[in-house]
Design a protein around this nucleic acid. Structure first.
Lengths: 338, 338
DNA sequence: CTGTTAGCGCCTTCAA
DNA sequence: TTGAAGGCGCTAACAG
């Protein structure tokens, strides 16, 4: 399928192809007449500029790369829609890539995106390795991390945007404490996830401060899926869970726990309170009505894009920004006063 | 950020850049020695071929465009993951684009993708306009429709893959009939969706054959969202629904209906049977356990990619293929014998 | 205001 | 086996 090029248009219009280029680029060193005529011909012939050829010269593609673990995860799909929408509004397009839940395709995808000359990359990841990936590539291509960068408070050499997970954990603890829960299980901590660790740390420190006793049940899967939550939930109930509340590492995990509880004849919130994290849309479903901590995905999305564009436009920018967004409690009906 | 090019490598290696090109392309008209040496230098310097420049010459980019209404819809996110995974396995990358639930961005996205020289496009849409979009562009770029192409059985000039929606409707009717339901409401038919019409037609013809009485409640929103299902459900219950079962146009609609039923104190399946369509992952949630018709997304995804690649590789292909995939009933706990 | 020319980074004949 | 040269579609000086 041979496509019509700028030369074809030039030939038809009887002008040089530089003129056509000018007509298209909105240059002002061209008469309105010829511009109109050329534009009409383009329309007629169905001309579409070859963006690749253009990028070759302009040294920018106006496309951003976005790497997420898995679109199927509603947290990431909502995030990616927010990012795509906002980027498009600012004149950028995004190439969405799934790195697999375990992140195994991440480096390959970086290479791929660099090869495609994207202007910048957003890496959305909650993994420990995330920071390493960013530092490996950020000298080659402007990159921002959408996730936690470091456990300690010292800033690393990465530009990052994330929710304040420590604060999120604290909010959870305060909420459960306010309902009188003392013995609470934190279910689904993934050791490979810095995000989860921060969340857990914030949760524990507040809980202990209140004299509560946090327990943990780790998730050794690579993803916080409903299935993982289900397995872990069954495990907890089978060995005789004797606390009053469960704080799930994510909403998906909570959904799985709910399923397990159902099978064990445990009613939420009557026999057991359940609190999630993320506020995915399915948490608001009837009969689910999961109380949770909201991640403010829209804000995260816009912050990440803004930061990335800032990095792209100021290549000499010799500072690193780390934006932390405050999470918020969403109270529904899965938690009850003990 | 200046990136290292083939010329830099050539200079360092002390060869012409044609030689470097050969080393990289796996050509056999080059000695193993120099190839190895060059490859090492590339590695050292962190050389990444500029895919754009390459595509300019090779006239193929190995990227496929995928247009879906909205990633946030789990049906489409599952589909898109399937498509991306399968395409990547075959050496293709995909550019995912959201056309908005109302499809308003579709034409713009076609133009965008054509400008980016994608090798082909998959348009996933259930709208009436879908066929028109495809016929408008398929001469410019190989395109396959993932959705229904025509109401009538005559083949149009489009290559298409879809579930057999008429059969899906029939299966639904047979199932509800087998449980003794006579008065059934088809809830959520979108007039703008060919898919829904086929589904409804199959449903009605079977239902009538059984002597049942199908009713309809149309959805005039642009998307089959949970919210739309909720509104429609409330509407149905408010005006006094007196049937025994509801067949929802999609699972998301069904989820909304469930919420409305909950508010009206109606228990599913005790007071009312509810059947969905799609089999999104959230239908299997505890306490939701929605019976539904499975769309076989994996199969759809692979069929669409295969067909598209076939069209790409055989440009002179003078036939149109339409693949219909059989849907399957997934029985859970939302339907009961009357 | 318009045309000419020289590349962007890469691949591919054609010579050597 | 290697190098030189032309060109993919387009933009950007520089002339005219």
């Amino acid at each position: 399928m041979r496509r019509v090029t700028i030369k074809d248009i030039a030939r038809i219009a009887g002008v040089s192809y530089a003129t056509v280029s000018r007509a298209l680029s909105g240059s002002n060193e061209i008469s309105e007449q010829t511009r109109k005529r050329i534009l009409e011909i383009c329309e007629q012939e169905g001309y579409r500029a070859n963006v690749l050829a253009r990028s070759l010269i302009c040294r920018q593609t106006r496309v951003l790369g976005l790497i997420i673990p898995d679109v199927t995860n509603p947290f990431y799909s909502e995030l990616s829609l927010g990012i795509e929408t906002y980027a498009r509004k600012l004149g950028y397009n995004v190439m969405l890539c799934n790195s697999q839940p375990d992140g195994s395709a991440t480096e390959e995808l970086f290479e791929f995106l660099v090869g495609h000359q994207v202007d910048g990359i957003i890496l959305a990841s909650s993994r420990n390795e995330a920071r390493g990936w960013v530092t490996k590539y950020f000298r080659t291509v402007p990159t921002v991390l959408l996730g936690d960068s470091l456990a300690e408070d010292d800033e690393g050499e990465v530009n990052a945007v994330s929710i304040d997970n420590r604060a999120g954990g604290r909010i959870a603890a305060e909420y459960l404490h306010s309902l009188g829960h003392q013995k609470v299980l934190y279910l689904g901590l993934r050791p490979g996830s810095l995000t989860h660790q921060l969340r857990f740390r914030g949760f524990c420190s507040a809980m202990e401060q209140f004299g509560g006793q946090p327990e943990v049940l780790e998730n050794h899967e690579e993803a916080s899926s409903i299935a993982a939550g289900y397995t872990l939930g069954k495990q907890a109930f089978a060995r005789g869970f004797d606390g009053t509340a469960i704080f799930a590492a994510t909403d998906s995990i909570a959904l799985g726990v709910l399923q397990a509880a159902d099978e064990f004849g445990l009613s939420v919130p009557n026999d057991l309170s359940l609190l999630g994290f993320d506020n995915i849309i399915y948490s608001s479903l009837p009969k689910i009505t999961l109380s949770t901590i909201d991640q403010r995905k829209q804000m995260l999305a816009e912050a990440a894009v803004s930061l990335l564009l800032d990095v792209i436009e100021n290549p000499a920018r010799d500072e690193y920004t780390r934006r932390l967004i405050k999470p918020a409690l969403v109270e529904r009906q899965s938690c009850k006063r003990v």
